[in-house]
């Protein structure tokens, strides 16, 4: 939310302690689904991947798999989570949704990387989520005041150009970020592979892999520049 005062612009996100949030979640690993090594998990995994192909409905492989979020409500998950458990849940958290999505993109032959987000909401929102997670006796270590830790996928669309898929929301994150409610403050893209790119392009921003990186905010000043 912008608070305009004369020619000086303030924004609530200016006061968000992104650095502290990045430190808090510095050692958070990206979520993965575990496998029991037996048929229970094998069936679950085969089901997810074959269902995804059916759901693709002859669409482009880069289509975000919204069917996963349609099937599973967003809510607390218990970790570690196994394939056979995950598919049976009614609710999955962002880590489980992102991990499933990651597998799905990989099965489609689409290059995708685990991505972690720090987003700003409001204390009213995070209080609600804390309540909800507490009711499910789940840990709320993903909440820090009005900031949250979130997971998604960085999908390579060409060369090193990526799009960020938010599987909990079922949308691609807008590379033009203004801060504010729901705004993306920082991102970390995991690309531990030896042949992984040394940098990604997301919109106009360069993203270095394997480290938290603050997102540049759009000031919306293109019009001023054009008018000059």
């Amino acid at each position: 939310m912008s608070l305009a005062e004369g020619k000086i612009e303030f924004d609530e996100t200016d006061f968000a302690d992104t650095r502290a949030a990045m430190q808090k979640w510095e050692h958070f690993p990206a979520s993965t689904i575990s496998h029991h090594g037996g048929q229970c998990c094998q069936i679950a995994r085969e089901w997810v991947l074959s269902t995804d192909y059916s759901q693709l409905n002859a669409g482009n492989p880069l289509t975000g798999p919204r069917w996963i979020r349609q099937k599973y409500t967003w809510g607390a998950s218990t970790w570690p989570i196994y394939w056979c458990e995950a598919v049976e849940q009614k609710k999955l958290d962002c880590g489980a949704l992102a991990a499933l999505t990651q597998e799905v993109f990989a099965a489609r032959g689409v290059r995708s990387y685990h991505a972690q987000f720090i987003q700003q909401y409001s204390e009213a929102a995070t209080r609600q989520w804390s309540n909800s997670w507490n009711c499910d006796e789940a840990c709320v270590h993903w909440i820090k005041e009005d900031l949250i830790y979130h997971e998604g996928c960085a999908v390579a669309v060409r060369d090193n150009e990526i799009r960020l898929w938010d599987p909990s929301a079922g949308w691609w994150v807008n590379p033009r970020q203004f801060g504010g409610y729901g705004g993306l403050l920082a991102v970390r893209v995991f690309a531990p592979q030896f042949n992984a790119p040394t940098g990604f392009l997301w919109g106009t921003q360069r993203i270095s892999p394997n480290q938290w990186q603050k997102i540049e905010r759009v000031r919306g000043d293109f019009a001023v520049a054009a008018a000059k």
């Binding site: 048929q39 094998q42 069936i43 085969e46 089901w47 991947l49 074959s50 192909y53 059916s54 693709l56 409905n57 002859a58």
Partner: peptide, 21 residues
């Protein structure tokens, strides 16, 4: 026609899963 061929591919994937499982 296009959708049918996608369905064919989809069925092949399900078949492979069933064969494995």
């Amino acid at each position: 026609v296009g959708q049918w061929w996608h369905l064919y591919e989809s069925v092949l994937r399900w078949c492979r899963s069933i064969e494995t499982l």
